[in-house]
Each structure stands twice: as structure tokens, then as C-alpha cells.
Design a protein around this nucleic acid. Structure first.
Length: 605
RNA sequence: GGCCCCGUGGUGUAGCCUGGCCUAACACGCCACCCUGUCAAGGUGGAGAUCGUCGGUUCGAAUCCGAUCGGGGUCGCCA
């Protein structure tokens, strides 16, 4: 088809009189009997094609044309009569009078509307993803995704970053998420793993002298899915040599806005530099390490105020070492006792809090079932600490610092969304810094790295590595957008002594370290530059930019919640011969499943 | 693995709480015919659903109960 092609969305009044050829899908048809209008669609928009008796010779079958048929139309573009102009349409001043119309492909009636973004059951959309992708919203999302990525590449390349591909089949590491494994044919019983991230390879690139690396890296993690989590996703991965945090921040504050602003996300540029909050402040003020800073509703500590109060629940808890914190809901006077003791208390309890106390500040003074337990001074103190005004409601939780943060943080997020405390088009992209180096695992009680074990620690805390590891701050940092973590990074350890002591803190001795990460440690013995980097979820950034609530809507061919792909029915059993070649045998209980593939989606419902 | 929500023609919904006027409604789509200026075209007529599945309660179940399957959200999990 070497014919010069005109895109459907492009002709304007000034093009009237031109003879042109357009290709596209039938978006709508309006058949008046003797006169037929067809709106032909491609990715640029739609163009009205007119088939009338004067020009319709040879187009006698035009009445049979249906939605989603693929047509080629040759004709003359004409200006519409003034009364026929459609101002709602980009191409509304013109129309193409068909001289010839070729059906390149007929189409079955689609299983759901393609010419509009109506709600459709997601499984059906995924089953016919090619039709879903043909619809306007996903066309926009994926084209924007491509634009975003090309701008990232442009900006990074302009800053001297080198794009390097790292392997997709690598050695499994037991740490972190569950690996997807790939069996080796030549070494039966041995497996590759698909990368959870290119972490170690990019550090090796630093050793290799590629002092500014980047990659739009595919990462695979076999964990349960969420609205913002797919088993296979894409990270903007960068690493830089001879840098500290400020250099990494500066690079990303240049690169991300360059791409973001080129996409005109939500109509406004990203504020630069990104505001910073330390992990400690984030936990204290917002109750989470990924705060949504679009609204205030901050946590305030009222432990001292209620320590000796007559409200025994608080006083006794504080005596046992608990803290008490509060959030003040502006205008929360409209929260009923049923609201608070129902939905809001459920949220607090889900976060392990034992309960949720509340006080209303009314015109006549403090009210609520527990108001009577506090002195006037204590109530004034709570009011002063929380900044409560008449008409507000103060919600309080007494517990361990972690539980208080989790409960009030969850309430804060809930109330922020439910009460519309922020502009929905606002985007807050912030740094969270100074994460703790280690956390204590809830179930095993073991000390584990909060980020990963190659993260450098704060120089001031080196002395605490053995004596008080949980107090050691790391040089790790996250980027958080509207309360969603989109990426994290750190300055890495290049000092063998520090690395050894960090491993020791998490129970990895020299022998284990050599076994697991020997290639990295050995590489570091040959001249390693100080380095650090960052990796961020492209999909999540696009979600925020495009205001999409689900990661699947920014990915061309995503998996469903069971990590299946309904279009191809992956994963699927394989032939016995394939297994044999790989030296694999399924346990008898699984053989039947293997021998009898699941019925295809169409038969499964 | 836990918890929550959803499942009704091709699509999206109503009906369900309070069982019987449901022989299941509406919009879009689909089919046929009419129609030369529409653009969410219009008009007339039509086809299309054993209400996810199985079981129970009942004289009677889309509706109540139980189980199960499928989808989504979430907690755990995601160094």
C-alpha cells in the first residue's frame, strides 16, 4: 500500500478540494438509505466519509458496511455547508466524498463497544485485549507511555547516561520477592531466575566504568497482585558513580519532570525540586513512610497532655509505655457517633489499634462520650495540640508508636479521600529520606534490611551497627507520589568493612556472603567507584500522571489478579516431552492438571 | 490463606433488602424494512437471558439460606 495516506483526524478546512486516501476502522455509520455517512477512525481521530448517489457508483455494497470494518476510502475532501459543520469534531468543517471505498476487512460484531470508553467487565476486556487497546482511553495511555519513555531516554542520554541491557535470565537470589524460575536444559535440576531488578548488574556496570547507567528494565516478581502491582513491570533504573544523594536527586529532578511535563499530565508541570521529608518525620506527621502530602490532617502527639488524665484507657496505656496521637478532622462535627464507631473504628482496628477515641469541639465546648473524663485544661491542651476549631472532630489512638502510626495513617488516608480534602488533579512528588537501615521482621523477629544490604549507612550511625542496629539510618530514599511509592534508591556500600558489618547485622557471615554475592564482592576488590542510584516504577508513574486507578490500564497486555493472561491463557501446561527434556517431573497429584489443559476462557464462564 | 464487593440477553444496568402482579424491565448493540444532510442520525418491526453453578427452604426463588466457581479490591506478601 504505497498510496499516500492521510490520517483521519488531520484534514481541515484549508485542505478542501484535495483528493486523498484514508484508511481506518468504521467508528459509526449513519445510513439514510440514499445517503450514507461513515465516521472512519484511526489513532488520530475520525473523519466523516460521505457516500451519496452522485459519487457512489461502484459503492452499491456500502449499506453492508458495519462497525469496526477496515476500509480504504479514496475521494475528494470538501468543505461542509455552514449548516452542516460539526463544531464538536476536530474534522467537523470537512468531509470526504467517497469516489471509491474498499473493504479491506470485514469484522464480527465486537463483544463490547469499541467506539467509546464504556465500562466493561475486565476479564472480557483482557480476553479481547486488541479491541480494548483499540478504544480511545488505552490508545491514549499507551501512546502517552511511549512518549514518556522516549522523553526519559532523551533526557537521560542528554545527561550522559548510557542505556545498557542486563540479562533476563540470571542467578536466583533467595532474598527479596519470590523468583520466577526458568529451568536449564543443559543442567537439569538447575534454574535461572528472571530478574526482580537489575540491582547487582548495574552496580557491576559502575565497576566497569559506565559511570552513568540507565535502563527501562523489565522486572519480574512472583508475588500476589494489587491494583498497582503486576508480576511483570517496568522500572526506570539508574546508577551513577562518584555521587552522593544530592547528585542523584538533581539528576532525577531533571529527568522525571522533563518526561512528565512533555506528556502534559494533568495539565500542570511538576514542581521542582521535589519536597523532602525524612522517614522519621513522615512516620510522625503522616503515620506512613509514603505520605500523601496533598492534604494536611497531620498527626499530633498528645501523650503528655493525657498522661495523667482521668480517662483510664489513655492514662493506663501511657503508664505501660504507649503513646497517644490525634488527628483533627476539619469540619468533622458532621461525623456521627455511628460513623466513628463503625467505619472509622474498623479502619483503626484493621491496623491493630484497640479502639478509636473521639471528641467533638462544638460551640458549647467539647462533647463526646469520653469528654467527661478530661479536665478543662486537658481538653484545652488537646485542642491546642491539634489546632481544633469549633466544628472539628479529634480522633485519638493510644498504642505503640507503630500501631498508632498505622491506625491514624490509615484513617488519614481514608478521610482525605472520603472528605475530598485535596484537589484531585494535584500531584505531589516528594522525596522520603533517611530510612532506617534495618527493620525487625514481624513474624520471625529477625533483623532484615529495610532496602537491601548494599545500602550505605549514615556516617553518624556507623557506631550503632552492632550496638543498636535498628537505630541506624541508611542513605536510602524513596520517591512518593500522592501517597504511592513509585521508586527507591540509595547510595551503596563500597567499603568492605562496612559491608561485612552490615551482613553480620542481618546474620550473613563471610562464608554466606561469598556464596550469595561473591561475584559482586570480588568485583569490588578491583577498584569500585563510590556510587548510588535509584529505580522507579514506570507503570506507577504513568498511573499517577494519567490519573488511572489500575496499573493494568497503562500496560498493553497485563495479567489478571491470578497472574493469568486471559487472551492467551497463560500460564498453560506443557507437553510431557518438554518436561522430560528439562529433566523435570511433576508429582503425580499435578499430572492430571498438566495433561488436561484448562478449557479456554470462552468455555469457562 | 483471611476479609470485603460483584456475577441478570452481545455490552452496561434495573429488579433482590420486603419471594407471587417477572410470561424478567431499560439503554446501547445486533437483524430486517423505510429514509438524500446526519454526526450518540431518525422511524417501524424483530431476535436475543433457564438471572454464574449446584443444593436447600417454600405451594411458589433472579429475590431467602448453604456450598461452589469466576472476577475485582484489600491484609498477609512485595530485600
Amino acid at each position: 500500500m504505497s498510496t499516500a495516506r492521510t490520517f483521519c483526524g488531520t484534514p481541515r478546512a484549508g485542505d478542501a478540494g484535495r483528493t486523498m486516501t484514508v484508511f481506518g476502522w468504521v467508528d459509526r455509520r449513519r445510513d439514510h438509505g440514499g445517503l450514507i455517512f461513515i465516521d472512519l477512525r484511526d489513532h488520530t481521530g475520525t473523519l466523516q466519509v460521505v457516500i451519496d448517489p452522485q459519487t457512489a457508483r461502484g459503492l452499491g455494497n456500502a449499506h453492508e458496511v458495519r462497525l469496526e470494518w477496515v476500509l480504504r476510502v479514496d475521494g475528494e475532501l470538501r468543505a461542509r455547508a455552514p449548516q452542516n459543520v460539526n463544531p464538536k469534531r476536530e474534522t467537523g468543517e470537512v468531509e470526504l466524498h467517497a469516489a471509491a471505498c474498499a473493504v479491506l476487512s470485514a469484522a464480527k460484531t465486537p463483544p463490547f463497544p469499541v467506539n467509546e470508553d464504556s465500562e466493561v467487565e475486565e476479564q472480557l476486556r483482557l480476553r479481547h485485549r486488541y479491541l480494548d487497546l483499540r478504544r480511545p482511553r488505552l490508545q491514549r495511555n499507551l501512546r502517552t507511555r511511549a512518549a514518556f519513555c522516549i522523553e526519559l531516554r532523551r533526557a537521560l542520554t542528554g545527561l550522559g547516561f548510557v542505556e545498557i541491557e542486563t540479562p533476563q535470565m540470571i542467578r536466583a537470589t533467595p532474598e527479596g520477592a519470590r523468583d520466577y524460575l526458568v529451568p536449564s536444559r543443559l543442567f537439569p535440576g538447575s534454574f535461572y531466575a528472571l530478574p526482580q531488578s537489575p540491582q547487582l548488574y548495574k552496580q557491576l556496570c559502575m565497576v566497569a566504568g559506565f559511570d552513568r547507567y540507565f535502563q527501562l528494565a523489565h522486572c519480574m516478581r512472583d508475588e500476589d497482585l494489587r491494583a498497582d502491582r503486576q508480576p511483570e513491570f517496568t522500572q526506570l533504573d539508574i546508577e551513577m558513580s562518584f555521587v552522593d544523594e544530592e547528585d542523584v536527586f538533581a539528576a532525577l529532578e531533571q529527568v522525571i519532570p522533563a518526561a512528565w511535563n512533555a506528556c502534559d499530565f494533568r495539565g500542570s508541570p511538576l514542581p521542582v525540586p521535589f519536597p523532602r521529608v525524612t522517614w522519621k518525620d513522615a512516620m510522625g506527621r503522616y503515620g506512613t513512610d509514603k505520605p500523601d502530602t496533598r492534604f494536611a490532617l497531620e498527626l499530633t502527639d498528645i501523650t503528655a497532655t493525657v498522661r495523667h488524665s482521668g480517662f483510664r484507657v489513655f492514662a493506663d496505656a501511657v503508664a505501660r509505655g504507649a503513646i497517644v496521637k490525634a488527628i483533627c478532622v476539619p469540619g468533622g462535627g458532621d461525623l456521627s457517633r455511628a460513623d466513628i464507631e463503625g467505619r472509622l473504628t474498623d479502619i483503626a482496628r484493621d491496623a491493630k489499634a484497640k479502639g478509636l477515641a473521639h471528641l467533638w469541639k462544638r460551640a458549647g465546648g467539647w462533647e463526646g462520650p469520653i469528654a467527661k473524663f478530661f479536665t478543662a485544661e486537658e481538653l484545652d491542651g488537646i485542642g491546642a495540640a491539634t489546632g481544633a476549631n469549633t466544628g472539628d472532630c479529634v480522633l485519638m489512638v493510644a498504642d505503640t508508636p507503630d500501631t498508632v502510626a498505622a491506625a491514624l495513617g490509615a484513617l488519614r488516608n481514608h478521610l482525605g479521600a472520603a472528605r475530598g480534602l485535596y484537589d484531585r488533579d494535584r500531584v505531589d512528588m516528594i522525596w522520603v529520606t533517611e530510612f532506617p537501615m534495618f527493620t525487625r521482621s514481624a513474624e520471625t523477629g529477625e533483623v532484615t534490611p529495610a532496602h537491601h544490604p548494599f545500602t550505605m549507612i549514615n556516617a553518624d550511625d556507623v557506631g550503632k551497627l552492632e550496638s543498636d542496629p535498628l537505630a541506624v539510618r541508611s542513605r536510602a530514599y524513596d520517591i512518593v507520589v500522592n501517597g504511592r511509592e513509585v521508586g527507591s534508591g540509595s547510595i551503596r556500600i563500597t567499603d568492605p568493612d562496612i559491608q561485612r558489618r552490615v551482613f553480620a547485622a542481618i546474620g550473613i557471615d563471610g562464608e554466606a556472603a561469598r556464596r550469595k554475592f561473591g561475584f559482586l564482592l570480588e568485583a569490588f576488590e578491583y577498584g569500585v567507584p563510590p556510587h548510588g542510584g535509584w529505580a522507579g516504577g514506570i507503570d506507577r508513574m504513568l498511573m499517577e500522571g494519567l490519573a488511572e486507578e489500575n496499573i493494568r490500564d497503562v500496560i498493553a497486555f497485563p495479567k489478571n489478579q491470578q497472574a493469568q493472561e486471559p487472551m492467551t491463557d497463560a500460564p498453560a501446561p506443557v507437553d510431557e516431552a518438554q518436561l522430560r527434556e528439562l529433566g523435570l517431573t511433576l508429582p503425580p497429584s499435578r499430572r492430571n492438571e498438566s495433561a488436561q489443559p484448562k478449557p479456554p476462557f470462552s468455555e469457562r464462564r
